[in-house]
Design a protein around this nucleic acid. Structure first.
Lengths: 232, 232
DNA sequence: TGAAACTTTGAGGAAATAATCATGAGTTGG
DNA sequence: CCAACTCATGATTATTTCCTCAAAGTTTCA
């Protein structure tokens, strides 16, 4: 299976809910990581680079709204709030701090799943201008919904980092991206200097995607600047 | 103030709720249009090109989910659902048809506003990124967003210094720039004396951009002064 | 726990770009 | 006409940036 499961981090102090979410979401094809405090959660988001975050507002160690603000200061990952409290002021504060959705306990699991799908749909908007979640250029097909990449309609397996790297390029197809921009998106803000990683993974992507990796037609080098995904 | 109010269309058959939304949203700085049937609503969306759509699922003339699907077939406008029914299956169907949010009546107006802000935030993001900043003169196209330069619509590759040099000229298109001004901008303040470099790189640019590099039509020499990019 | 998959590190050589050197062509004024 | 000047450009060297391979470290999962 070349498909990479979307990564979800659950920040929730109640063990039973945490366990429930973990098992339920796992069976639905998500890769789930769970933590029980806000501090750990913030670190985990920085490390795992999740596709989505589920956050309980009522954590013991930190104020929920502060957690949102902290994460929002460096990440645009979709955040879905779970809360025992349904009071309107708290909802509004959470939304304005950067939350994308808000569910009050108890909630239906089906509804949560549907809202997760909506959030994931949103986070891949940039290249959705052409109405589909599938990006095609030349003989490359990038299917963001199923997380499948094809060359000549043949599935190609990509590792997580390879996939993220290609996604960043696809999101900005046609634009020249600097090394720093790419490193920040794929590895995180603290990796801005390691242009080396980028070269290696670009090389790997070329091996997998280009007909002739030595003569890239798709993943173009902009010497002294960065890289660019060519659009046709 | 040049900023135009976001346009919201409300599709709702209950006159009292419609009136309430109209007046409340108007005072919050939105331009509101209202209709009472699905068919009218679909037409209205096509005509008004709103920034957001508020849709009651329980309309008399059409199924709410079908309305969503119809609109989604040609538009990505954010859709917030209002519904008297809170049953989970309906929510899921609405989300998967393309709805972005779902509120059950009765709802708090503050929460609706917050969710509207979230939805607008989402739809804004792509727009902010793709500000086109393209300069065209004669057969030269300078695309600062994608960092691409074209002559006769054909891509021309420029090295970093060549690109910076052209950018300085484009920024001051039509004006005469002294050697020193250009050197300071491209190489930095300590290179003011090396007018030499400038000649070499101007020559390179002409080779790449001019039809006849010996008879420049674009990159003009102002003898004894500096250079000038001709605008048409 | 051991094997497989993946990521990070390191190093050599290739390629692209920049800086320097060198030459000739046009222009101006005496 | 010939200096003295500015300008254009080709050739050469130096430097930076880039690609790839291979090995070591890490994580993941059965």
């Amino acid at each position: 299976m070349a498909k990479t499961d979307p990564v979800i981090i659950v920040i929730e102090d109640d063990p039973s809910i945490r366990r429930f979410l973990h098992t339920s979401l796992s069976t639905q094809g998500f890769k789930v990581f769970e933590v029980d405090t806000g501090k750990k959660g913030i670190v985990e988001v920085g490390v795992r680079k999740p596709d989505l975050l589920i956050l309980d507002l009522g954590l013991p160690d930190m104020d929920g709204v502060d957690i949102i603000k902290t994460i929002r200061s460096w990440s645009t990952v979709p955040i879905i709030i779970l809360s025992a409290r349904s009071d309107e002021q708290q909802k509004i504060h959470a939304f304005d701090a950067g939350a994308d959705d808000y569910l009050t306990k108890p909630f239906g699991f089906g509804e949560l799943l549907a809202r997760i799908r909506v959030a994931l749909r949103h986070s891949m908007r940039p290249y959705e201008q052409s109405q589909t979640d599938i990006f095609i250029t030349g003989n490359l097909k990038f299917d963001a919904v199923n997380r499948v990449v094809c060359v000549d309609n043949q599935e190609v397996h990509l590792t997580p980092i390879q996939y993220r790297l290609l996604m960043v390029l696809v999101k900005n197809a046609g634009k020249v991206l600097t090394h720093q921009q790419i490193l920040k998106e794929v590895w995180g803000p603290s990796f801005k200097e390691n242009a080396h990683y980028l070269r290696i993974y670009m090389s790997q992507l070329r091996q997998k995607l280009e007909a002739d990796p030595a003569q890239p037609k798709l993943l173009l080098t902009e010497s002294g600047i960065g890289y660019r995904l060519k659009v046709w």
